[in-house]
Design a protein around this nucleic acid. Structure first.
Lengths: 367, 367
DNA sequence: GTGTCAAGCGAAATCGGTTAGTATGATGAG
DNA sequence: CTCATCATACTAACCGATTTCGCTTGACAC
């Protein structure tokens, strides 16, 4: 029971007075910034406990020039991919006594810069930018301000910056080879907007793998949403006649699943579908989705770890980290329909439910 | 081109010097805290622009006693329900120049208190606690520290606190009545852990509505996950033989959909399924999910608005806000199977994929 | 011309920490 | 016994804003 309780919170001076030491000593006990004799430290700690003292973070960061807050910039917090990354990052940060401010850019480079500016104004110690949608100016800005930064998929780390490279190719190659082994020879790739760096990378990985397997590829650009995947798959089916489609993220793959359904195509008997990301829901679609997993928890943890290394080491030249991806085979991929057979069965026998399902489109057959 | 650029960032003193005024005046121009003559203000603003001055937030919050950061505490950032709420909140906050720190409690009251403590240490101006899983002590803590707070579903707002009440009952009643009109008389309710306040509220709403419609209810407790919903639905089917199940959230409803599938039950011909939350994916399940929508954007915006009112007004007695829910009918609910017929069809004719059985079920029309 | 009042502005204290630089006492060597 | 040396702890100058209080000035009434 402290009489201070009812007035304002205890300050470092209160603690110092009660422990019979100076504020400097209290500070050193708190931060282990200089050795303090055991018994002195004990007295200080006791005083801290008795007063329920909690350091004022504003004062701390004003005096020290850095706050105990780090920034995390992601593309889209509503894409189920990111909350998991965020959580892992945040938990790792918490273990080091750092709080995290999360900001979402919605894939817009201008917003990315805005977020970075706002974070800089908060005196954050460091920033992890887990979106590739960003102009060079954003990186320059952080470098100029001396703010440590971790990036995703953007070249090499430099001084005060690290980079995490996701090895999209390996997972995508696995997926393509998997499809090839199942006999697929025409595969459509549903990409996201190709002005986005990370999507160009995925597309190129796909094209590379396809070439290596002598598969005939097609690329359709869409917008990363379920609707976009639906639309793109419909388009691919009518123009390209693939036996399999692969989407650049799971949301679009889910859209593709629906498109197949509306085209009276069984998945995987008549059409194989593969996704990318391995979001939680990919395990619960009908049929469950074959997809390329990118380890989200690891990504979040690695991002913070990289940032922490930059923060704690002096002049650490930024390292480069790498994260691999791998194929997860589920039900949505299967053997390619036999070549000589028509790929699309006719009539009700292909429908999944009651044929009167609304939204059923006319048979999208092509010449 | 400022020569300061290469040294340290400009301070308020630099601005004052350049504008030929005192720091006090600069501060007043910045915060409109006192009237300043137009031409003086113009000089100050010009200096600010020329120096690229950005106020140091740490200093600001140290001096003023509050930071421009607000806290948002949610139950589970990985549940797709919350990112959307978060985003709306964050955008509303941004419009008022506030940054947001989001923390996730995973439905654990102890963590909730921990989050609140950490936020308090950051001198946040206010906190929105959008989880009901919290002990009284957490609210007391905030009250004692004088931190403005907005709560969800916990009684009335008090001094410096507001409350948002979600009207679960209306949406749930709509759902129950909807099912009753379709002829359902035995409905199982898949609840989440009943030690959680918000789930007791939902269960009670369900039981109340069921009683009013003379429906025979059953309640099964589960854990809010897809797996949990799967398990609970299986259990309900074997023990209670419902013609419809309603889940306390969409994730469990999705699990129920899968359970029905594995029990060879068509949805909705043999079993109707309804969810709660209207998460994005409920629109893309197979079949699409009938569910009770709770307006997420509105919730986020309302939460911030309530907080802002508490922050800007003096001594505003906390208001009570209310948010209504409404039923969204999709494909997963349909007429109850005819009473005199067996509820569970036998054999392959009930499977989803085998198409050879159009019209397998009796005409579900009622007498 | 004088008194009153408000508006506009500045000097300086303040917020609660950090951290150089310095003082103190104990210890050991010469 | 004296003087470095070392380990500890203190003094006090910051960090960059806000905010109180008092001073100057000009407008206006009488």
């Amino acid at each position: 029971m402290e009489h201070r309780d009812k007035s304002r919170p205890a300050t470092i001076r209160d603690v110092a007075r009660r422990a019979g030491v100076s504020t400097a000593t209290v500070s050193h006990v708190l931060n282990h910034s200089k050795p303090v004799r055991r018994d002195t430290a004990a007295r200080v700690e006791r005083a801290i406990r008795e007063l329920g003292y909690q350091a004022n973070t504003s004062a701390k960061s004003l005096a020290s020039g850095r706050s105990a807050i780090v920034g995390l910039v992601v593309s889209d917090i509503e894409n189920p991919f990111f909350p998991e990354v965020t959580r892992a990052f945040q938990e790792a940060a918490h273990l080091r006594g750092q709080e995290t401010i999360v900001m979402s850019t919605h894939y817009d480079p201008v917003r990315t810069l805005d977020c970075i500016r706002r974070l800089a104004a908060l005196q954050v110690a460091g920033v992890a930018v887990l979106t590739s949608e960003m102009h060079q100016s954003a990186m320059d800005y952080l470098a100029r301000k001396g703010i440590r930064a971790v990036y995703l998929d953007v070249g090499k780390g430099g001084p005060h910056t690290a980079n995490i490279a996701v090895d999209y190719s390996s997972g995508i190659r696995q997926a393509v080879e998997h499809l090839r082994q199942l006999g697929h020879e025409r595969i459509a790739f549903i990409s996201g907007p190709l002005e986005l760096v990370s999507l160009r990378i995925r597309r190129d990985a796909f094209l590379g793998a396809a070439a290596a397997c002598s598969i005939q590829p097609a690329v359709i650009e869409s917008d990363l949403t379920i609707r976009g995947g639906y639309w793109a798959c419909g388009r691919a089916l009518s123009r390209f006649h693939p036996t399999a489609v692969m989407a650049a993220n799971d949301l679009m793959a889910i859209g593709a699943l629906h498109a197949a359904y509306d085209h009276h195509l069984h998945v995987p008997e008549n059409l194989s579908v593969a996704g990318f990301d391995n979001i939680l829901f990919s395990e619960y679609t009908q049929p469950t989705l074959t997809t390329v997993a990118i380890p989200r928890r690891e990504l979040g943890e690695m991002a913070f770890q990289a940032l922490w290394d930059l923060l704690s080491g002096e002049n650490v030249e930024g390292r480069n980290y790498c994260l691999s991806t791998r194929l997860v085979v589920r039900e949505s991929t299967g053997p390619a329909p036999h070549r000589t057979e028509p790929r699309r069965p006719i009539g009700a026998s292909a429908t999944r439910h009651d044929p009167a399902t609304p939204g059923t489109n006319a048979d999208p057959s092509e010449p």
